[in-house]
Design a protein around this nucleic acid. Structure first.
Length: 538
RNA sequence: GGCCCCGUCGUCUAGCGGUUAGGACACGGCCCUUUCAAGGCCGCGGCACGAGUUCGAUUCUCGUCGGGGUCACCA
């Protein structure tokens, strides 16, 4: 049997992190077994612009490396009617007609308030609501009568009222339902449009889906789908209901709308603050609704590695063994199995995701890191240089040199080592690329390391005059500089920090960063002296 | 409320009758160190509870409690 799985997003305008996990598991399972992964678009109830709302989802999946074999934007698609539910109405109509003909569905003329009354009564009696079928049309005469009353018809499933259904779920084992608890669900609306459950069943049959892998919130509505499958004589797919992705530190389903609440979680806040800082430095308008860690784009925007997201999400509700944590997509495909899927809801852990990012970034070569960082550096620099408005173009021209210092960037990334965990972190080191006369000082550091230390400036001045000024620019390496400084420190009989802190603030504007002498090496003699001079005159 | 699902450190999990209950992330401490990261070492911390079954239960059964999902002319 060919394994065929599908991910069926509704075009909502964004790719939810929980959706990623579902898509990923479907993808992994299909690839593992040499099958196909299909992308189908559930847009039966879509008012807005579908292609616009779908694009971020397609982009997000592609970015993550979850590529579909059939679906939108594919040149060769076997399905003549396409993969959009909105384009498949003929198929759905045929299915409804058949259900009607075979007696597994009926036309119903109840008014919404009449249904509601029955439902309220059931709730009051603490019983399962079951529609009385009072307004069900048995014959054409019934139809005429109801229509004469001004009633509008819909199509309902005529669900069994006795017996049991056992679903053999690949994750949960056998799950038993009583048919009597099932309702006569609507499958076609007054306006003739179709409902999700019907469309879903028809599509899965047409696309020959072998395994339905989806979040567990779908488990309660599986019986009605199986009822349709059986009534229409379709093949029954295998089911695997995944635990859903929960809020950090909770078992409640993760939701895009609860960001405020999540921000109270320390790890979540850390993740968001870090990302906000990057976004700010590239001049991005931060809109909390869209710039949200529940949405995949958030990570892409600040430079996370797609493989980190994939790795982290693969381990939400799945594990290979008791030790393997780091996976590439290829390794995931090889290792994945539905048996490894856990049953309990699994919290999304921002700290763990960040840890994966760190580890995956570490595996990149300097060359790869440069490639990843350049767009952020470019954005950050142009934002930094133009935020003062008028002067912008002039400043940009004057400082064009700073944009094209490949060699410096390369060295910097080497020296920065694991301080850069996300491509956007390169912006922590933007100071190396900006004109010396524009270097901003961290005022707290300046106060603490220079202003409030009387000997700081004299020491700096002396170091500059006696040591740096006469030092051969050709020997301007961090090793030579370090020796130079240490000799100076020894001679003066001071602690290293007495010189290094003021020097650090003077040359980089702040008291944290890469190794002091590596920093001076990158700056070069001329710029180092200029920055010190500027501080002395401040 | 009806129906269904779930329950191992704070979090993600390994475990599939006998283990000092293992790992990862986070957290705390120490070391290293010119700052910040990183790294090394150490530590904190868990089988929801109660009955069975069994020589023996984290593991099997039942119950209790707790958490969650779902009950649309949404998907």
């Amino acid at each position: 049997m060919t394994i065929r799985t599908r991910f069926a997003p509704s075009p909502t305008g964004y790719l939810h992190i929980g959706g990623v996990r579902t898509a990923l598991f479907n993808y992994l399972f299909a690839k593992k077994h040499g099958g196909q992964f299909i992308l189908r678009i559930d847009d039966t109830d879509q008012q807005r612009n579908v292609s616009e709302a779908l694009q971020p989802i397609l982009d997000g999946l592609r970015w993550l490396g979850i590529e579909w074999d059939e679906g939108p934007n594919k040149t060769e698609n076997p399905q003549p009617n396409g993969y959009y539910q909105s384009q498949r109405n003929d198929k759905y109509q045929a299915a409804v007609d058949e259900l009607l003909k075979s007696g597994f569905a009926y036309r119903d003329f109840a008014k919404p308030e009449e249904i509601q009354t029955e439902r309220d009564a059931a709730v009051a009696e603490k019983k399962t609501f079951t529609y009385s079928r009072t307004w069900a049309a048995e014959t054409e005469a019934d139809v005429k009568k109801f229509e004469a009353d001004g009633r509008q018809g819909i199509i309902r499933l005529k669900m069994p009222r006795e017996g049991k259904l056992v679903i053999h779920d690949l994750v949960r084992g056998d799950v038993e339902f009583d048919w009597s608890n099932e309702q006569d669900h609507v499958i076609q609306r007054t306006d003739g449009s179709f409902l999700y459950h019907l469309a879903n069943v028809v599509d899965d049959e047409d696309f020959q889906i072998s395994h339905v892998i989806r979040a567990e919130e779908h488990l309660p509505n599986t019986p009605r789908q199986i009822f349709m499958i059986q009534s229409l004589g379709y093949h029954l797919p295998e089911y695997a209901h995944l635990p859903f992705v929960a809020e950090p530190g909770s078992k409640t389903k993760l939701s895009k709308r609860k960001l405020d609440k999540y921000l109270k979680n320390k790890d979540f806040a850390k993740l968001v603050n870090h990302a906000n800082a990057i976004a700010e430095r590239i001049g991005l308008e931060i809109n909390a609704a869209d710039f949200n860690p529940v949405i995949v784009d958030f990570y892409r925007t600040v430079g996370y590695l797609p493989e980190a997201i994939v790795n982290a999400m693969a381990l939400v509700g799945w594990a290979l063994d008791d030790k393997t944590e780091l996976f590439t997509m290829r390794e995931l495909i090889d290792a994945f199995s539905l048996e490894g899927v856990t049953k309990g809801a699994a919290s999304f852990d921002p700290a763990k995701l960040f840890a994966f990012e760190e580890k995956h970034f570490l595996t990149k070569t300097v060359g790869e890191k440069v490639k990843l960082c350049v767009p952020f550096l470019t954005e950050g620099l142009s934002h930094f240089l133009t935020k003062d408005g008028d002067r912008s173009s002039e400043w940009c021209q004057d400082t064009e040199i700073y944009f094209s210092q490949d060699e410096m960037l390369r060295k910097l990334i080497g020296y920065a080592g694991e301080r850069i965990k996300v491509a956007g972190d390169i912006l922590d080191f933007i100071d190396f690329f900006i004109p010396d006369e524009m270097l901003p000082y961290n005022e707290t550091d300046y106060e603490k390391r220079i202003k409030s230390v009387p000997e700081a400036l004299p020491l700096l001045k002396e170091f500059r005059q006696l040591t740096l000024l006469g030092f051969d620019a050709g020997d301007w390496t961090h090793q030579a500089l370090e020796k130079l400084a240490m000799d100076f420190i020894a001679e003066k009989g001071i602690k290293p920090n007495a010189l290094i802190f003021p020097l650090r603030v003077a040359t980089t504007g702040k008291s944290i960063g890469i190794g002091m002498f590596e920093a001076l090496e990158l700056l070069g003699k001329e710029r180092t002296l200029r920055r010190i001079e500027r501080t002395l005159q401040r």
